[in-house]
Design a protein around this nucleic acid. Structure first.
Lengths: 159, 159
DNA sequence: ATGGAATCATTAACATATTAGATAGTCAAC
DNA sequence: GTTGACTATCTAATATGTTAATGATTCCAT
């Protein structure tokens, strides 16, 4: 007997909608030999001259262990430099290279162009609604959200 | 000279918003030893008794090569069965097992409960706005969306 | 000064994402 | 009944996501 949950899968709608948009940007990014994450990172650094890894994690929605690898690869191909801070030997400074500066100078405008095309196709009102609603989800202060009580069992083998 | 693109990063807002919601469901799913994708798949199959891989790809937003691995692991731990169709030897039918039936019977209600909690915390209007806007992005028919012309070069080494 | 808590980055182990290509089966035209 | 286009799935190679644990510093209260 097929069992249908009483609501639609909201997180999944996000995935679809995001893909609907991103699919029009991805070709541009990959054309330049970048991955989506690498572009996110370059774009973030380009706005501030330099960033620390934990800041990049926060801004780009990348977990720390993932970022370590991404930055290593980017360093290998000369897209960024990593230098430890003198004052605090735990921290690291990530900067762009001339190479990635050039890259962003070419790629950035294309992204902007594509964005305009998308705004045309989707309609400016829809895009604005998106910003509004997403911002509400993200930045509205709500107290701690309770968590349902979980039963004791944990292992798949128990079923 | 820090260079700021003229618009916010929309796909990234989706990531954040999605995480804002999913973070309240993830503990439930992992508590039962499932991954997010495994739960998406079980939930989809539970609604229709059986599905073919390409249908699962479509429904769950998982690419075919990823799905192959996920299904293999799920088969290994006895969450699903895979059987080739007699009429068309290319196609496969994926079904739940008694084990996963039990699992979904326990997990499903907890997800529904948590969903209600979240609806409370975020407000029913916001949730409804979300459905409305996301649906517009996903399911509105638009013609083919043009793609910006890309310059000839392609290799990172050229920079 | 010193030991323990906290912080930042990394490593390890596993699961998934992404792109390209391979494989095997189906089907229609010839 | 073969060929060739097409379809559904899978492999392979590389990149990233996820959770837990480690290593190296810094900080803070004693």
């Amino acid at each position: 007997m097929p069992r249908k949950l009483a609501y639609r899968n909201l997180p999944q709608l996000f995935l679809r909608a995001r893909e609907e948009l991103l699919s029009h940007f991805r070709p541009i990014i990959t054309h330049f030999g970048l991955t989506e994450q690498q572009w996110r990172i370059l774009r973030a650094i380009a706005e501030t001259e330099q960033l620390e890894p934990r800041e990049i994690c926060e801004i780009c929605q990348i977990l720390s262990p993932s970022l370590t690898g991404v930055l290593s690869r980017m360093e290998d191909v000369g897209l960024i430099t990593r230098t430890r801070m003198a004052e605090d030997q735990r921290r690291v400074l990530v900067r762009m290279t001339p190479k990635s500066e050039k890259l962003v100078a070419e790629l950035g405008p294309l992204i902007v162009e594509q964005y305009k095309i998308i705004e045309q196709a989707f309609g400016a009102e829809l895009i604005n609604e998106l910003y509004t609603v997403l911002d509400k989800v993200i930045s509205i202060e709500r107290g701690p959200i309770p968590q349902v009580k979980l039963p004791p069992r944990k292992e798949l083998a128990d079923y």
